[in-house]
Design a protein around this nucleic acid. Structure first.
Lengths: 238, 238
DNA sequence: TTCCGATGTATCGTGTCGATATATCGGAGT
DNA sequence: ACTCCGATATATCGACACGATACATCGGAA
């Protein structure tokens, strides 16, 4: 599951693991940040599959280790000899390959069978701009159907519960599901209204958001005037 | 994590695995139903720890299964000879032991360290009636603090995102967090108002199995009227 | 009677998580 | 100049939840 997110981020720029984690936790909307225990294995899988590859870190490995008698320095040199070539500070910067690009498209477009984990949907939505408009709409409508079904199930549960706390819990779940549903509806409406215009490369035409005054929230629709990343930001200082 | 739920359900009545799963999926408010792949190992762990034990199934198992710590090998051989006698239909009904009862209390009251997974909180809340009122209140307030912190973090993320879909995603997260917060506030208010010893319906020190009625009404936390946030110490400047 | 679907227990591989080990770098303090 | 400390950074470990799957039995429909 992480693969999709990793590839999506590497599509925009080359990154090393630590930075990747920060972006996963910060810029994407995941409930709990991804841990290293899943990130590094996922990167290893992707590298083994040829979807990403380590690129040369800016400062290369050429940093001469001055044998100044510093204990730590010599230790470092010793370790560096039997290790993989990395950047000046052990960074291992990854970039996406053509194969990885294909894998990304495939993962993004995969028809998730009925289960559709919430996290996975969020993931896909976060990268929805890489999808053609019709696929986007299909994804949203599938999600909607899923939420409707969940809503029904929750309502069924409500009758079976007698304990006060459990009841409140389920009631809250119901509200959350309905809230999700109305959110999806707003997204679908927005998609239908201002739909076309985002290829992976294309820039959105105009903000289509304005109509959504329905529920208290003003910013419900993201006004797809996504200011694309200014440019390829500079790499974090190597 | 499942252990808490299993013990909580077995506290009310003896159940076998399949039924246990149904209750976990139906009556509790878990996003995705618990799978057998986690339920059975959890039951096995609990049995190994002496917290639960298999009881006689109704339909008279005349041949007690010699579970002398035999492992899969013996078990497979045993099963192979066609005569595996459990309940009338192979059911294996579990009951909670005194030791398990203690474990339940311990798990329920454990101070979850700052992380406080959402599912775990839901779990605890579902069994909150087994907690003394002050512990309940403490749990809710810890949860509240957690949500406030999350809210802050989400708001921080909002500034860093430029893509339309990702932005909408985070915005939705923010609303969900605020919704959760107001829900917790209502729970706290309700707890402060009428919760202690004189809860309308039941003061469930012991989950007497005979609490048959009382289903009609929400009972436990009925007054979910719109109450304003409680006055807690920390508030975050918008 | 036969077959099918619901019930029921159990295991396997995979992925994620939290904790932890190791190491480097920049800067604060002394 | 020195050391110590916290942020950066990669990596692995054990625990465990999950989906898939295998196997078995029961109740009833064909």
């Amino acid at each position: 599951m992480l693969e999709l997110a990793i590839l999506g981020l590497l599509k925009e720029q080359e990154l090393h693991g630590y930075e990747l984690k920060k972006r996963l936790s910060d810029t994407l909307g995941f409930a709990s940040g991804v841990s290293f225990g899943s990130l590094y294995p996922a990167l290893a899988r992707l590298e083994a599959a040829g979807a990403v590859k380590a690129v040369e870190a800016k400062a290369a490995v050429t940093t001469p280790i001055p044998l100044t008698g510093s204990l730590s320095g010599e230790l470092a040199a010793f370790r560096a000899r039997k290790g993989v070539v990395r950047g000046s500070r052990g960074k291992k910067v990854y970039g996406i390959t053509d194969l990885g690009d294909g894998l990304f498209e495939e993962l993004l477009a995969t028809e998730s069978q009925s289960n559709e984990d919430d996290r996975l949907f969020n993931m896909r939505l976060a990268f929805a701009r890489h999808l053609p408009p019709d696929a986007r709409l299909g994804m949203l409508e599938r999600r909607r159907a899923h939420l409707v079904e969940r809503s029904v199930q929750i309502r069924a549960r409500l009758k079976a519960v007698r304990d006060g706390y459990a009841l409140s819990l389920i009631e809250h779940d119901r509200e959350a599901a309905e809230h999700d549903l109305s959110w999806i509806d707003r997204l679908i409406a927005s998609e239908r209204a201002g739909a076309h215009a985002s290829d992976p490369q294309a820039k959105p035409d105009h903000p289509a958001a304005s109509t959504t005054t329905s529920t208290s929230n003003g910013a419900g629709i993201p006004s797809l005037s996504g200011l694309r990343p200014v440019d390829t930001e500079e790499d974090t200082a190597p």
